[in-house]
Amino acid sequence: MNELEPDTHEEPYDFMHTEHGGIGKYLAVFVALCVLTGASFFTYSSYWPFGKHVAWAFMMAVSCTKAMLVVMFFMHLLWEANWKWVFTVPASCMSIFLVLMLVPDIGMRQNNGYGWYSFDRLKYTAAPLSEEEKGKLKKDIEEDIGQEQKPLVSPTH
């Protein structure tokens, strides 16, 4: 046989036919998914004892767990070889970093506890400023410029 001919008598994909716990495992994952869906719904009901932010973190954690269960068991990645990292890691990196990088720019453009980000954006928000917020803003601008800010246009709004 020519050295360079592919050896077509071999079955390179033998290991795919092995049983990995069978139907029972899939049904267990199904039950777990239903329970987790119920759990995330529970945070929304009035019985949730913690605050809003804990509820959000919990819901994201539940979503990630459910996604991991589907990816590992239904999509079979738990038993696949190292190529799974090549496909999943770069895509996940992009997802996480994209969101993280947009958070300071857009996610925190309003009152975020660290200060006002952009006066122009603030002017056109849906909610009106309180007197205290307006005073704070004026002070910030005056500090930045080092002199009293005179309005360029007569204040009609």
Partner: peptide, 28 residues
């Protein structure tokens, strides 16, 4: 299919990331 799915992950990550950022960045 896996290559396609990784592009789809990025596609939906863009959309979902947009939603997360816009929703938590808006006052109302």
């Amino acid at each position: 299919v896996w290559l396609f799915l990784s592009t789809e992950i990025m596609f939906f990550a863009g959309l979902i990331g947009t939603y997360i950022v816009l929703r938590f960045g808006s006052t109302a």
